[in-house]
C-alpha cells in the first residue's frame, strides 16, 4: 500500500512540472513581459521607461531562463522561470499585479467557496441519486418516459438561465432570501440557500441521467437476477443490492472532485457576490491580473492531481478486487 502510494506520488510530480512549464510558456513566452506591461499600462505609446518601471515593480525584469550576469547557482535562480514558476511548488504564489499577497488571499477566500460548494455537492448527490433510483424503479413505464423527456429539457437550459430565473423568482418576486451577498459565520446560511438550491436544480438534468445509466447497467447483471429469484421485492433489490454496488463508481466520481471544491464555482460566486476563489479568479481575469490567473491555474491542477490520488486510494479501500499492481 505504502509502496503504491509513493509510486503514485512520484507519477504526480512530472505532471505538476509539465503544468508548470506549460503555464510558464503561456504567460511568459507567448507574450513577453514587455507586451504585458504595455497591455497593463494601457496606452499605445508607452515610454520605454514606464515599461521598465512596471517590470521592475513586478519582478519581471529578469531574463527568462538563464542569467549570464550572475555567478554560480544564481545564474539559474535569478530568472523569471525560477522566481515565478518554481516557487509555485512551495505554494509561494508571490504578489499579485495589484500588490496583494496572493497566498493570503487564497487562504482567506477558500472557505466561502467551500461553504457554497460542499452543500451543493452533498444535496445534489442526494437529490440526483434518489431521483435516479425512483426512475429505475418505475422503468418501462410512462412515468420514466415523461421523466427522461423532462431531464433532457432540464439539461438543455443554460445554467445562466437557472441563476437569473432563480434570483428573479425567489429573490425578487417572493423575497424569501436576499438576492446576493455574503456574511461571515452562521449568518451566511441565508445567503447560501439560494445558490445551493439553484446549483442543485441546474445539475439535475445531467446528474440524474448519469446515475440512471449507472443503475440501469447494474440492474442487468446476474446478481440482481439471483436476488430477484430469491424472492426479494424490486425495492429491496434496488436499495440493498444495486445501490450498494453502484456506490463504487459514484464514490470514486465524487472523490475526484472533492479537492476541487476549494476552487469554487466561477459563475455562481460572481452572480451571488460570494467572496470565494471563483469570484477572485473572475475579478483577476477581468482586471487582467496575470499573476493571480497563473497561480490559480497551478493551484487548480494541484488540486485535480490530488483528487486523482484520492481516487486511487478510495478504489483500493472500497473495491477489494482492485489489486495494487
Amino acid at each position: 500500500m505504502i509502496n503504491y502510494l509513493i509510486r503514485r506520488l512520484l507519477y504526480a510530480l512530472p505532471l505538476l512540472m509539465a503544468v508548470n512549464v506549460l503555464t510558464f510558456v503561456l504567460f511568459f513566452v507567448v507574450n513577453s513581459p514587455d507586451d504585458m506591461a504595455r497591455m497593463q499600462l494601457g496606452q499605445k505609446r508607452v515610454t520605454e521607461q514606464a515599461i521598465a518601471n512596471w517590470k521592475h515593480q513586478h519582478g519581471y525584469d529578469l531574463p527568462l531562463l538563464f542569467n549570464s550576469d550572475e555567478q554560480g547557482a544564481k545564474q539559474l535562480t535569478t530568472t523569471i522561470f525560477y522566481q515565478k514558476s518554481v516557487n509555485l511548488f512551495l505554494f509561494d504564489f508571490g504578489i499579485s499585479d495589484s500588490g496583494r499577497n496572493i497566498g493570503a488571499d487564497i487562504q482567506q477566500r477558500m472557505w466561502p467557496s467551500l461553504a457554497l460548494a460542499l452543500p451543493s455537492l452533498i444535496v445534489g448527490l442526494l437529490v440526483n441519486i434518489s431521483l435516479a433510483l425512483f426512475m429505475v424503479l418505475f422503468r418501462n413505464s410512462y412515468l420514466e418516459l415523461g421523466g427522461s423527456v423532462l431531464l433532457v429539457m432540464l439539461m438543455s437550459i443554460s445554467s445562466l438561465f437557472y441563476i437569473i430565473g432563480g434570483q428573479f423568482l425567489i429573490g425578487k418576486l417572493l423575497k424569501w432570501v436576499p438576492i446576493s451577498g455574503y456574511d461571515s459565520g452562521w449568518s451566511a446560511i441565508k445567503f447560501l440557500m439560494l445558490p445551493v438550491m439553484i446549483s442543485v436544480v441546474a445539475g439535475i438534468g445531467s446528474g440524474v441521467r448519469w446515475y440512471r445509466s449507472l443503475f440501469l447497467e447494474e440492474v442487468e447483471k446476474d446478481y440482481v437476477r439471483t436476488a430477484r429469484a430469491k424472492g426479494l421485492s424490486e425495492t429491496q433489490v434496488l436499495f440493498k443490492h444495486v445501490l450498494q454496488n453502484a456506490m463504487i463508481p459514484i464514490l470514486t466520481g465524487v472523490v475526484v472532485v472533492l479537492p476541487l471544491l476549494f476552487m469554487g464555482s466561477l459563475i455562481m460566486e460572481s452572480f451571488f457576490s460570494i467572496p470565494g476563489l471563483g469570484s477572485y479568479t473572475i475579478d483577476a481575469i477581468n482586471r487582467q491580473d496575470f499573476a493571480i490567473v497563473r497561480s490559480m491555474v497551478f493551484l487548480g491542477s494541484v488540486l485535480y492531481i490530488a483528487g486523482l490520488l484520492l481516487t486511487d486510494i478510495s478504489y483500493t479501500l472500497v473495491d477489494p478486487r482492485v489489486r495494487l499492481s
Partner: peptide, 22 residues
C-alpha cells in the same frame, strides 16, 4: 486534463488579447 478547463481557456484568451493589442 489536470488544468481546470475554464482557467486554461481564460489564460489563453488573456494571452490572445495581449497579442491582439500589441
Amino acid at each position: 486534463n489536470s488544468i481546470p478547463s475554464v482557467l486554461l481557456i481564460a489564460a489563453s484568451i488573456l494571452m490572445v488579447q495581449v497579442y491582439m493589442t500589441n
